[in-house]
Write a protein that binds this DNA or RNA. Structure first.
Length: 405
RNA sequence: GGGCGGUUACCCAAGUGGCCAAAGGGGGCUGACUGUAAAUCAGCUGGCAUUGCCUUCGGAGGUUCGAAUCCUUCACCGCCCA
């Protein structure tokens, strides 16, 4: 009963492993029941940036499922692991962050997570509290359980090895640290994406075993692609949909996701049942549904989760207005300007462009409009006697207000 | 520690004294098309300035009328040897 629900949507890339994990989960459930306790479930999130995005919610939704079944969920904030950066992430090595930065970034992590997790049933833990206590001796002991070759067969490392790109020694610690988290928390279940297979299945399970704990069960989910539809969602790539964005923006960002990624989005970040999703996919395939309408449904679902059903209609209306009917949005920032200012200066001042050169370029490319009229002259001087709407490109808007007389 | 090769713009990568703000690709942006999808096409992609100037080719210093390109030195990376 619980098993099928908990294994729902998992993706191991290996049927044998999946069966093994399902079997272990079954056994473990029975055991904890006899012990009169609940499963201890955890997933770690590294605060390498300050905001969580849709991609983070995939494991969080799975955690929520465990919560609903009464299990104990620990939301680990990887303040210590984020110092290294998971080598599974391509460019995480590049920018090392400090504990101070990680702490700052983590400030609102829990608050953001509670959009998905039940705050009353979530334990928050920071992994620096135990990882920073380890001695060099401890580290040696942990490290001695693994061979260099085991790490090297990992895709992330192997590719770099073959490309003769640097692989830093400390990157190997990441898996050890994550494994130690699982050991320290004595977890029964660890959740993560397919990119965490090595960290969870190889490192954590082995470490727990040699340290005298039962290996935790890996619940592995698929990876949510970003708004480009291909690469894993991440803030540093700029293909993310932040949880803390306004409903209109969230709706629009979902709409910009390529069709091919829709199915992943439905499966990974909405509450639709597998049956409902099958119906949608069938309808798409037969041509019964228009992909755009399906995507609008997707956008409604997602906006509804984070902003509430009551604002969904408004977000959708705003989207239709601006992108389908090509009207100006109802709400946009105002800027009071005085007479005789150069348009390019106003654009830079308002943050619509980074430089005057960029502003001129956009005007040149016919990408700047004032009340719908394309501005032709890069040296345009503004003389307003009534408010006008400045549109830069597809989605940058500003209402210019004339000076008060 | 020794030998060799390398460090170029957001990323990859060409460029070995002036024609280099620096080829090409990716990414991003603008426009056309359109469903803020995909594909395609055209263009843009350091800053300031209306013909010019300033900053940029790992850091610092030097040679030269002139350097991403040559020299010195420092730092970092890879390969091979130990």
């Amino acid at each position: 009963m619980q098993i099928s629900l908990l294994m729902q949507g998992t993706e191991y890339g290996d049927e044998t492993l999946k069966q093994a994990m399902a079997q272990e989960l079954r056994t473990r459930l029975l055991e904890v029941e006899q012990e009169g306790r609940k499963l201890r479930v955890y997933c770690g999130f590294d605060p390498r940036t300050s905001d969580l995005h849709l991609g983070h919610t995939v494991p969080m939704r799975k955690m929520r499922q465990f919560q609903e079944l009464g299990h104990e969920v620990t939301f680990v904030i990887g303040r210590f692991t984020s110092l290294i950066g998971d080598p599974s992430d391509k460019d995480s090595i590049r920018a090392q962050i400090t504990l101070e930065e990680a702490t700052l970034n983590a400030e609102t992590y829990a608050e953001q997570a509670f959009k998905i997790l039940d705050p009353n049933r979530t334990r928050i833990a920071y992994n620096d509290t135990w990882l920073s206590e380890l001695t060099f001796q401890d580290l040696i002991k942990l490290a001695s359980n693994f061979t260099f070759q085991q790490f090297l067969t990992r895709d992330a490392f192997r590719k770099r090895w073959e490309a003769e790109d640097p692989i830093y020694l400390h990157e190997f610690f990441y898996a050890l640290m994550q494994g130690y988290d699982a050991y320290h928390l004595k977890t029964d279940v660890q959740i993560g994406g397919t990119d965490q297979l090595f960290n969870i299945v190889t490192a954590a399970r082995k470490l727990m075993e040699v340290l005298g704990e039962r290996p935790n069960i890996a619940i592995i989910h698929g990876i949510l692609p970003g708004t480009d539809g291909v690469v894993k969602m991440s803030k540093s790539l700029g293909n993310h949909i932040p949880l803390q964005t306004d409903p209109e923006d969230m709706y629009g960002k979902v709409m910009s996701v390529p069709d091919i990624a829709m199915s992943s989005y439905f499966r990974l970040v909405t509450s639709l049942t597998p049956t409902e999703i099958d119906e949608i996919e069938g309808g798409l395939e037969s041509g019964e549904f228009h992909p755009r309408d399906v995507k609008m449904r997707l956008a409604r679902e997602i906006v509804g989760i984070y902003h509430g059903e009551d604002v969904v209609d408004k977000a959708e209306a705003a989207f239709r207005r601006v992108f389908q009917e090509r009207e100006d949005p109802e709400e946009m920032p105002d800027l009071l300007i005085s007479h005789g200012l150069a348009l390019v200066d106003v654009m830079v001042e308002a943050g619509l462009t980074k430089s005057k050169g960029e502003a001129r370029r956009l005007i040149d490319q016919r990408g700047v409009r004032l009340d719908g009229v394309v501005i032709e002259n890069p040296e345009e001087i503004l003389e307003l006697d009534e408010p006008k709407v400045l549109r830069v490109g597809k989605r940058r808007f500003l209402r210019l207000l004339p000076p008060e007389e």
